[in-house]
Computed example of a mutant assay.
Amino acid sequence: MRAYLHPFRGSTPTDARPPTPRTVTKWILTRPDALPENDRLKLKSVLVHCPEQDALTRHLRDFAQILTRLQGDRLLEWITAVRADDLPSMHTFANGLERDLDAVIAGLTLPWSSGIVEGHVNRLKMIKRQMYGRAGFSLLRKRVLLA
């Protein structure tokens, strides 16, 4: 029995499983100051081993800062930085932003939003779908006005 267990006694346990892509994504999308120290160290380890992931993380965090702080004037600088790296998916995203650059910059700079209007439109469409084929326009009108 001892001969059977002998090879395993001196060995150290293997490292824990690597983090899942979902976990790494969560770490990247969480604000760095809100990330627990243990997770921050694990993320740092992942980024050290993959330079592409490190560049992607930098670009995502920079874009999040532009988005949350309404710094649309930095967008062209950000797009230039994205183009400097070899990240095809980010190039595709940047191309999409450039298609209507003026509107994107305005959306990332101005404090106004059409979110409230979009919410009301969504509510009206939901009521219309619930009523489809069940009643006429007069009942639909009453539901919309009373809702």
Rank of each mutant, 00 (worst) to 15 (best):
M1G: 14
M1V: 09
A3M: 11
A3F: 08
H6S: 13
R9G: 11
R9P: 06
R9Q: 13
G10M: 05
G10V: 12
G10T: 15
S11G: 10
S11M: 15
T14E: 14
A16M: 12
R17W: 05
R22K: 13
V24F: 06
K26E: 14
K26R: 13
L29R: 11
T30E: 11
L35W: 09
L35V: 05
N38V: 13
D39V: 08
R40N: 02
K42N: 06
K44I: 08
K44S: 09
S45G: 09
V46L: 02
L47H: 03
L47R: 00
C50K: 04
P51I: 08
D54F: 04
D54T: 01
D54R: 10
A55E: 15
L60G: 02
R61F: 07
D62M: 07
I66A: 03
L67R: 10
T68Q: 09
T68N: 09
R69N: 09
D73H: 08
R74E: 13
L75E: 08
L75M: 01
W78K: 02
W78P: 02
I79Q: 05
R83Y: 08
D86L: 04
D86R: 04
P88A: 00
P88E: 00
M90H: 01
H91A: 03
A94E: 02
E98N: 04
R99T: 05
A103R: 05
A103I: 04
A106L: 12
T109Q: 08
T109A: 05
L110C: 06
S113F: 10
S113G: 06
S114E: 07
E118N: 00
H120F: 15
V121A: 15
N122H: 09
N122D: 13
L124Q: 12
L124N: 14
K125M: 11
K125F: 08
I127N: 08
K128T: 15
K128L: 12
R129Q: 11
L139V: 14
L140K: 04
R141P: 08
R143C: 02
R143P: 02
V144T: 07
L145W: 09
